[in-house]
Design a protein around this nucleic acid. Structure first.
Lengths: 207, 207
DNA sequence: GCCTTTCTGTATTGATCGATACATAACTAC
DNA sequence: GTAGTTATGTATCGATCAATACAGAAAGGC
């Protein structure tokens, strides 16, 4: 069952991983074909033959990212024993992940294409969809917590979900600005400091 | 004291404001000269004669932004009667500001150039410096609160500052993802729900 | 009037963008 | 072997990028 023509001379998975790292460090738009081909160690025609287009390459890189980098963070959310543990894990794991090396600070999904206007709509939509999907994971976990009696029935699941996700997104900016591991973890700690009040208020007032 | 040569045929301030709006909606890199000149109603040579370069134009737009758009939000921080009021105002005013029209959702300072790698270093540094400056405003207000006895001496001012700023930055992402005014305000409310615990803990644990 | 100065519109610069045409190389099938 | 298929490297495509050269227009100074 060997393929018919001339065999590919490079490791497709390894090249995809390199591409992901370039997108992670530079974002979708700023990652040029020259950047990508250099990092991947191949020429443009090979890239297009294997990945169709820059956009399709990014989509694959995004899938790889969520399957590898975001995996630990988000798998722990439904698996956590309580709603509180789920949120604490999410924020702490995010802080730990963003404390890595220089090139990988912050989340690819959050930082790759922040501008709605003018960007490739499919890229923007894919990232937006991805953010919505991860948000849904947390929301479902919190809903389950309410159903199980872990959280009071009056807890505002939508608001708490949005709040925790907002802190997580904000951590990407902090990480890109060079915040230390300690700072990132302190932020996560602060965000959880008011948990008891947070879940016991039906509709948290705007102040 | 009339200027010597042919008078400028456009309103420089009005053109700068238009440029700011383009940068706000598209970010620095994605805002092309064609976009800018069209919005400003002038040709490229006029733009360069009046603003030197795209980069210098952005710097001026950034100054205008902080002098107008960010003004209400940040002026209220030192002016607030208490640390709690300062933070609550900051987050609520941010939520209100980001609930505006489609093109202006989120903060220009946060969203214009999220990628450190490869971007124009001076643009990136300017935005980073601006974020640091606004962070410093909040930090100073909290320090004053400790000095005045408004906050306990054991309060972790650095961590609280970083936390509140992180929520504020995260609101930009939420706003760009289309969060409603109610959602943005609910997030601000959630962020403040744990205030009493937040300020009474010396070093908030990571969970 | 004429000269200098500054701005305006047209047209264009070299660089870089993402994406390919083409000829050649390397493999399977027969 | 030959035919068919796919990948590779070089060289390049048209489009777009930020930035200008240039000539004409509109003002003040004299």
């Amino acid at each position: 069952m060997a393929p018919r023509g001339r065999p590919r001379a490079f490791d497709r998975d390894a090249a995809l991983r390199k591409a992901m790292e370039v997108f992670w460090a530079k974002g979708y738009e700023r990652a040029s074909l020259a950047d990508l081909t250099e990092a991947m160690g191949i020429n443009a025609p090979s890239l297009y033959a294997a990945f169709t287009s820059k956009e399709a390459l990014f989509q694959e890189a995004l899938t790889l990212y969520s399957a590898t980098e975001g995996c630990d963070i988000w798998e722990g959310v439904p698996a956590a024993p309580t709603a509180r543990a789920a949120c604490a894990h999410l924020l702490r794991a995010t802080a730990e992940a963003f404390a890595g090396d220089e090139k990988r600070r912050g989340c690819l999904v959050v930082l790759s294409a922040p501008q709605t206007e003018g960007s490739s709509p499919s890229i923007c939509d894919a990232l937006k969809h991805h953010r919505a999907a991860t948000t849904a994971v947390l929301r479902e976990r919190l809903r389950r917590a309410v159903a199980e009696g872990d959280l009071p029935a009056t807890a505002d699941v939508e608001a708490i979900t949005a709040y925790v996700v907002t802190v997580q997104h904000g951590l990407s900016i902090q990480a890109r600005d060079g915040a230390s591991r300690e700072t990132l973890l302190a932020i996560a700690g602060c965000a959880m400091a008011g948990w008891e009040n947070l879940v016991s208020v039906a509709h948290p007032p705007a102040a």
